[in-house]
Amino acid sequence: MYGWIWRHLPGNTWVRAFCSLVLVLAVVFLLFQYVFPWAEPLLPFNDVTVDGGGS
């Protein structure tokens, strides 16, 4: 998959590296802005139960 993306980016190695960095930053931005807020209520991270039984 990464090879396919690399071959389809325009320019020489430096331009391709810059374009791939921009693509990675765009994906991270989309994940934090849209995907993670949408999925957060579906995840069980806030369902914390503390057992009251001690010694």
Rank of each mutant, 00 (worst) to 15 (best):
W38T: 14
F45L: 12
P37C: 07
P41M: 04
P44H: 05
I5M: 06
A39M: 15
F45T: 05
V48N: 10
L30K: 05
F32S: 07
V24N: 08
G11E: 03
F36V: 15
L43G: 03
R16L: 00
F45Y: 14
V48G: 01
P44R: 06
F29T: 10
P37A: 08
S20M: 10
W4R: 09
V50M: 12
L30V: 11
Q33S: 06
S20Y: 10
D51T: 09
L43V: 11
N46I: 01
W38N: 07
G11H: 02
L42H: 14
P10S: 07
E40M: 06
V15P: 00
W4H: 09
L9N: 01
W4Y: 11
F29C: 06
S55I: 09
T49I: 15
H8A: 02
N12R: 09
G53K: 14
P41W: 04
F36W: 09
F45A: 08
L42V: 05
W6N: 02
G11K: 02
Y2M: 11
F18A: 13
L42D: 04
G53R: 13
D47E: 13
N12P: 01
W38L: 15
I5P: 01
W4D: 07
V24I: 14
G54S: 14
F45V: 08
Y2A: 12
W6A: 04
P10L: 03
A26P: 01
N46Q: 10
G54I: 15
P44Y: 05
L21D: 03
A17V: 03
F29L: 13
I5G: 02
V35L: 15
S20E: 04
G53C: 08
L42P: 00
R16S: 00
I5S: 02
L31T: 07
L31I: 15
I5L: 11
L25E: 10
D47S: 13
P10M: 02
F36D: 04
L31W: 14
L31G: 05
